[in-house]
Write a protein that binds this DNA or RNA. Structure first.
Lengths: 292, 292
DNA sequence: GTTCCGCATGAATCGATAG
DNA sequence: ACTATCGATTCATGCGGAA
C-alpha cells in the first residue's frame, strides 16, 4: 500500500486554508511554547499567546472530521515565580469556538532537565489536551493495549532487575506499568498518565518530542489509511512516525530549514511492501531517524 | 513537646472567621469535588463551584502567613463527555483575589480504580495546586529528598580514585558531570510529579487521600511546631498526619459524623515524650512513603 | 557477543550582570 | 528603572567505545 505525505512551507493559519473541510482524522501537534525571548524560534509572548493561537485552532476545527481528534501538547512557563495562565485561557476560548475539551493526558517526563531552585523542583510533566468536535469520535482502545505475545513471554522469563525497576520505557511504547505487573495477564489497559523519557538523540530542533508520544495517539485515534496533520511540524516527528504507521500525513512548517529537513526524509508517496510488525512487538531497537 | 489540635464543627467560611490573620503555615485540603448529584457528601454543582469556593479562599488568604503555602488537591469531573472547567476558572479567580499560583504538582495514582469507558481510559492523576501569598515562602526542600537511582548508586560505589581526581581537576569546564560532587550524597531532589498509590484502608470518607500525600507537603512546607490547617477535614487524614509530625493542627468539618470521628482520634493536646525520629523516618512499613 | 563505563544533553529557572 | 542575556545548577537516559 502507499501513503501520501503532503508538506507545506508557510504560516499555519494561511496554509490550513488550503485544506478541505472535514478531511483530517487526527491532529497531533506541539506548537511553539510561549516565550518571553524574542529571538527564539517561534517565540510568542505569553500575553499574546491565546490571541495568536485562536485563528489556527479555528481552522483546525474546520478541517477535522466530526469523528476526528485534536491532541495538543503544551505546558505553561513560569514567569516571575508564577505559572502562566495562557493554557487555561486557551482551553476556555477554544470551547467558545466550539471545541469539546474531552480529556487531559499527562506526559510524565522521566528524565527531565536538571535543576533546583529556591521555590520549586524540576518540572517533569506536560499536558496533552484532547479536543473533539463531537461527543462521538473514533477511538481504537484495543490498539494501545499491549498483548502478551511471544516476545513478552520471552522477555518476562529473563526479566532483570533493571527491567523491573528502571527501564519502563522498554515496555510497549513506553507507557504503562512495570513489566512484572503483566505476569499472568493477557492485556493491560493504559491510563491517562503516560510515562516516557524525553529523547536525547541528534535532532536539531529544540522542540522535538519522543517518537512514542505521537505513536501512541496515532494508534489510539486512527487506523491505517487515515490522515494525520501536524500544523507545527518542526523536525517532523509526528509525520515521520505516522507515515511509518501507514497513515497519510500533512505537515506545515514556517521555518524553511526544518521544512527542507523533513522533505528529505519523507517522499510524497511512500510504498510499503512489507508488513512490519508494530515496534512494540519487535525485538529490534526502534528504527532511528537519521538526519542527512 | 506538645502540639495542639483544634477542631471546628461547621461551615468553613464561617468557622474560618474565628481564626486570626497570618497565623497558618500550611493549608492542605481536598475540598468536596463538584458533583451533579445532590445527595453526595458536600456535592456542589459544577456551575456553582467557583462561586461556592471563593469566599472560603478569601478567608484562607487572610489566615495564611505571608511565608505560608496553600496546597489544593482537586480534579475536574467529566460532565457529558467533557472535562469541566471549574478548576481553571477557580485558579483565574483566585489570582484576582491576590493569590499567586506558584506551581501545579501532579499526583500520579499508581493503582487507580480499574475501569474503561467508550471514550476514555482510567483517570490516574489529580492536581495539587500550590498557591502563595508572596513570592518568598518557606520551603524545606532537603526534607523530601529521595534516594538516588540505581544507576548513580552503582556508579558511585565503583568510582575509582582516578575518576575522583580527574573530575576535580575539571572544575570550571562548565556544563557537564562532576561525579566527585556526588560522593557522600545518596539522595536527589524530587520533581513535581508524585507517585503514590491510592489507599484502600477503612476510611468511610469518599474523598480520602493517602497519608503520604499530606505528609510530603507538610515536610516540604513546615517544620515542627508550625500550624497546619485543613478547612475540609473529612476523615482527618491531614490533621492526624500533621499531629504525628509534631505540627499544630486546625481542622474544620461540616458533617457531625466525621467531626466526631476525628475528635475521637485527636486529643486537644498531644504530648510527645520521645524525641527520636519522626514516624515518617521509621522503618515501620505502614508509614513508609513511596515517592519516587 | 556481552557488559561496563564515560559522556553528552534535554520545551528549565533563577539571579546577576550588561546594555 | 527596565529589559535582555548569561552563567550556575544537576539527574535520567541512551549511545558508543572499551574491557
Amino acid at each position: 500500500m502507499t501513503v501520501k505525505n503532503e508538506l507545506f512551507l508557510g504560516d499555519s493559519k494561511k496554509e490550513l486554508e488550503k485544506l478541505p473541510d472535514n478531511s483530517i482524522d487526527l491532529i497531533f501537534t506541539s506548537p511553539p511554547y510561549a516565550d518571553q525571548r524574542k529571538n527564539t524560534y517561534g517565540g510568542i509572548h505569553p500575553d499574546k499567546y491565546v490571541e495568536w493561537f485562536l485563528p489556527v485552532s479555528e481552522q483546525l476545527l474546520r478541517v477535522l472530521k466530526p469523528t476526528g481528534t485534536f491532541v495538543l501538547n503544551i505546558k505553561e512557563r513560569v514567569v516571575k515565580g508564577e505559572r502562566s495562565t495562557y493554557v487555561m485561557e486557551l482551553i476556555l476560548e477554544m470551547k467558545k469556538q466550539g471545541w469539546l475539551w474531552t480529556e487531559e493526558y499527562i506526559w510524565h517526563k522521566k528524565n527531565s532537565y536538571p535543576g533546583k531552585w529556591p521555590n520549586r523542583f524540576r518540572d517533569a510533566w506536560e499536558r496533552l489536551l484532547q479536543f473533539n468536535k463531537e461527543k462521538k469520535f473514533n477511538m481504537y482502545q484495543e490498539e494501545v493495549m499491549v498483548p502478551m505475545g511471544d516476545w513478552a513471554k520471552t522477555r518476562l522469563r529473563k526479566l532483570s532487575d533493571t527491567d523491573k525497576t528502571r527501564d519502563e520505557s522498554k515496555v510497549g511504547s513506553g507507557f504503562g506499568k512495570n513489566i512484572s505487573n503483566w505476569v499472568g495477564r493477557d492485556k493491560a489497559y493504559p491510563t491517562n498518565v503516560l510515562h516516557l523519557a524525553t529523547e536525547c538523540s541528534n535532532k536539531k530542533h529544540s522542540a522535538a518530542f519522543p517518537e512514542g508520544l505521537p505513536e501512541w495517539f496515532i494508534k489510539l485515534f486512527t487506523k491505517e489509511g487515515d490522515t494525520v496533520l501536524d500544523p507545527f511540524m518542526g523536525s517532523g516527528t509526528t509525520n515521520i512516525v505516522a507515515s511509518q504507521m501507514k497513515r497519510n500525513t500533512i505537515g506545515i512548517e514556517i521555518v524553511p530549514e526544518y521544512y527542507e529537513m523533513v522533505k528529505d526524509q519523507l517522499q510524497p508517496e511512500e510504498l510499503y511492501l512489507l508488513e512490519p510488525k508494530p515496534s512494540y512487538e519487535s525485538d529490534q531497537p526502534r528504527r532511528r531517524i537519521s538526519i542527512r
